[in-house]
Nucleic acid binder design. Structure first.
Length: 422
RNA sequence: GGAGGCGUGGCUGAGUGGUUGAAGGCACUGGUUUCGAAAACCAGCAUUGGUGAAAACUAAUCGUGAGUUCAAAUCUCACCGCCUCCGCCA
């Protein structure tokens, strides 16, 4: 959610921002509605003011006849208010509906473009492996080593169901222990295990609803399953006021994640790259309301992720997402994509975004500065490590001519000090 | 799932229809005092929206939403949350 005052004063910027994100919204129409809203609000408030005043007179006045007269008068005014309130309510509903659709303004440095195909590479790291043989894809490799069972997965869990097995399960646990140790020692990060089964409010607050209703699983109690720990972690301080000296607040959150993948039925239908249920560690930050601080922290959480990919020895590149590939609230986003030999391209493992106060305004997360003044905090997030997806890149990049898979050095101690999956 | 109780400002805690946005206390801020501090004393101290250059004025907010009333923290209903007891269960 943007501040209506900001929208009023910067309507051209907001409209241009929406265009850059390829989101169709008429800011001018919103402002006309807003004028109308203010006019009706004023009328209702003036009438209420009159009622308040006279009500006090009634309380004070002892003359019964005069009392009765005033009460009758106010009864009439009340009727008038009722009618106007009805009108205002209708306007407000329309206003709210439009307001939650207004996208945050993307940063100047965000490239133009419609889809992820127009994201721009900003840097690459690592040497892509050269194979003297035809490399297998992760689906085949994991099957060959009995690291996953897709058939029984879909028998039991349906489309995109899977079991992780043997060294597949061990590798996933190894990654979990690795990333936990990595962040446990990292200064400032509070580790949290967070809920995934959530009410509607945190989804509205983070900007996943109302737009992405069809991407979320919903229960018969009208709760939703979160696709990322970001949702509940951001909800943690919902409707609260934070002391400025506690900022930035950094969370290292773990949760199961659930995604319907409604818009991607044909994509990545084999294996464990795109699945309905997985485990993810997420970095979430609340910071002071400063663009510079947001930018700095954005680079920091991106660097945290890159450091791990480097230790895991996975070649990757970082892309800055184009306007059309940004979410409603995102100001800027980097996707980190690791090399996938079987596809001859990079595939996403991490996604780092910052939002300014878009989410915190919806969630009402504020902080108080030295002078007691209140501000909406800024928020950011990035994947820490998402499982089992990253195993796809690990097994593909580390496959050997003899069919074995080399275990990344940093994970060996969690895999019984072995060098290979044979 | 059943029975009962409760939800007031940063905290604590009064307040069952009428100048109550809300007593008192704590905390916090400023001042007096002091070499300095503590204590004491004095003063200040909610948020959001609107109008306004500002001062100020105005509306809303006592879990949330509806309702009754000229007037609601106070009465009614629904929902949410918390607590206690019973049942069930990891």
């Amino acid at each position: 959610m943007l501040d209506i005052k900001f929208i009023r004063e910067n309507k051209d910027i907001v409209q241009a921002g929406a265009k850059k994100k390829h989101i169709d919204i008429d800011i001018e129409a919103l402002l006309v509605l807003d004028d109308n809203r203010l006019k009706e609000l004023k009328e209702v408030e003036d009438l209420r003011s009159e009622v308040n005043k006279v009500s006090n007179d009634i309380a004070r006045d002892q003359d019964p006849a005069l009392k009765k007269q005033l009460i009758d008068e106010m009864r009439a005014v009340k009727e008038e208010i009722k009618g106007k309130e009805e009108k205002l309510k209708t306007i407000m509903e329309e206003w709210q509906k439009l307001m939650v659709q207004v996208p945050n303004v993307p940063d100047m440095s965000v490239p133009d473009g419609e889809s992820d195909e127009e994201n721009v590479e900003v840097r690459t790291w690592g040497d892509k492996p050269q194979f003297s043989f035809t490399p297998k894809n992760h689906v085949e490799l994991m099957l060959a080593h009995d690291m996953a069972d897709y058939e029984r997965g879909s028998k039991v869990a349906g489309f995109r169901g899977y079991f992780m097995k043997n060294d597949g399960a061990r590798l996933e646990w190894a990654l979990m222990r690795y990333v936990e140790e990595k962040f446990m020692d990292k200064e400032g990060f509070t580790p949290m295990i967070v809920p995934s089964l959530l009410r509607r409010e945190p989804f509205m607050g983070t900007g996943y609803l109302p737009q992405s209703e069809e991407d979320l699983y919903k229960t018969q109690d009208s709760d939703y399953l979160a696709g990322t720990a970001e949702v509940s972690t951001m909800g943690y301080y919902m409707n609260e006021i934070i002391d400025k000296k506690d900022l930035p607040i950094k969370f290292f959150s773990f949760s199961p994640c659930f995604r319907r993948e409604a818009g991607s039925h044909g994509k990545d239908t084999k294996g464990i790259f795109r699945i309905h249920e997985f485990l993810k560690y997420e970095q979430v930050i609340l910071s002071e309301a400063s663009h510079e601080t947001s930018v700095k922290l954005h680079e920091e959480i991106t660097a945290n992720a890159e450091a791990m990919l480097q230790e895991l020895g996975l070649p990757y590149h970082v892309v800055v997402n184009c306007g059309g590939d940004l979410g409603l609230g995102q100001v800027k986003k980097y996707d980190i994509e690791a090399w996938m030999p079987s596809e001859g391209k990079y595939r996403e493992t991490h996604s780092a975004s910052y939002f300014h106060d878009f989410q915190t305004r919806r969630l009402s997360i504020r902080y108080k500065d030295e002078n007691g003044k209140l501000y909406f905090a800024h928020s950011l997030n990035n994947t820490a490590l998402a499982m089992p997806r990253i195993i796809c890149q690990i097994v593909e990049n580390y496959q050997q001519a003899d069919g074995s898979i080399k275990i990344p050095e940093v994970l060996r101690k969690y895999m019984g000090d072995r060098e290979f999956i044979i």
